[in-house]
């Protein structure tokens, strides 16, 4: 079943076309990778899908509902949550409070929110740092905090923007396990990532963007063999 569908989405900043005529759809429960060189328009596309930028043209359907032009908080309440390329912890609030803010999207009770938050902190393995201010966490744990925070909003679709960026191999591996674990619970995920090994391993499908346009779409194997993608982004070593 299709959970998210993009129909000819374009985003212009003045004369600059950040996204041009992008269409693809996401199957429920799958992981879709979004790759492309820097400036290809990956994060802009995330911003369009999550409501931070209204698309200049086109339509976005989430669970068959047109969400084009909705505000970010409305989209979050519909069950779509995102992380940020540059992590955005609520630095002066504690780790627990950060996740509680996410949980409060679904409940009015602080008590229930606290329980949900504790649960999610256990999922990402930072439950031992609940009372620390989020600003005191190292980058790896900040990334995991962001994942816990959006999991607490009880989403059906997660948009992860370079959650492995700036992490070392073992930290990346933990995130990969987390993503696979989330998949096994039936959640759909869309992942922007530059680590090709990781993205080829976890994705069911991959969409390649280049200069704001969709260059290719297919299974990881298809993408790795696609000459256009190799020329534009992957280079010969991956072929």
């Amino acid at each position: 079943m299709t959970i998210l569908e993009l129909k000819n989405v374009s985003k212009f900043f003045g004369g600059l076309a950040a996204n041009t005529d992008i269409s693809f759809s996401l199957e429920e429960g799958k992981i879709i990778g979004l790759i492309g060189p820097n400036g290809a328009g990956k994060t802009t596309l995330f911003n369009c899908i999550t409501g931070f930028y209204p698309p200049s043209q086109g339509q976005i359907l989430f669970k068959k509902q047109n969400i084009t032009g909705l505000q970010p908080h409305q989209i979050c309440r519909l069950g779509m949550a995102r992380t940020w390329q540059k992590v955005r912890p609520l630095v002066k609030m504690s780790v627990l409070d950060n996740v509680m803010v996410g949980a409060l999207c679904r409940t009015n009770s602080l008590k229930i929110a606290r329980e949900i938050a504790m649960e999610q902190l256990k999922v990402v393995h930072i439950e031992h740092k609940t009372n620390m201010p989020a600003g005191g966490l190292p980058i790896g744990e900040r990334k995991r905090l962001e994942i816990a925070r959006i999991l607490a909003t009880n989403p059906e679709l997660l948009l992860l923007d370079e959650v492995m960026g700036g992490l070392n191999t073992s930290e990346s591996e933990e995130i990969i396990q987390l993503i696979l674990e989330t998949k096994s619970r039936g959640l759909t995920q869309m992942v922007i990532e530059h680590d090709m090994k990781a993205i080829m391993r976890i994705s069911d499908r991959i969409v390649v963007l280049n200069s704001g346009e969709k260059l290719a779409e297919g299974t990881p194997a298809e993408i790795a063999d696609n000459q256009e993608v190799i020329d534009a982004y992957l280079g010969e070593s991956h072929a």
Binding site: F52, P72, C76, A81, R88, P89, V101, G102, C105, T153
Partner: peptide, 10 residues
């Protein structure tokens, strides 16, 4: 703490 983060959390 962060308006955009808050917005994205509903």
């Amino acid at each position: 703490e962060d308006q955009d983060a808050a917005h994205s959390l509903g």
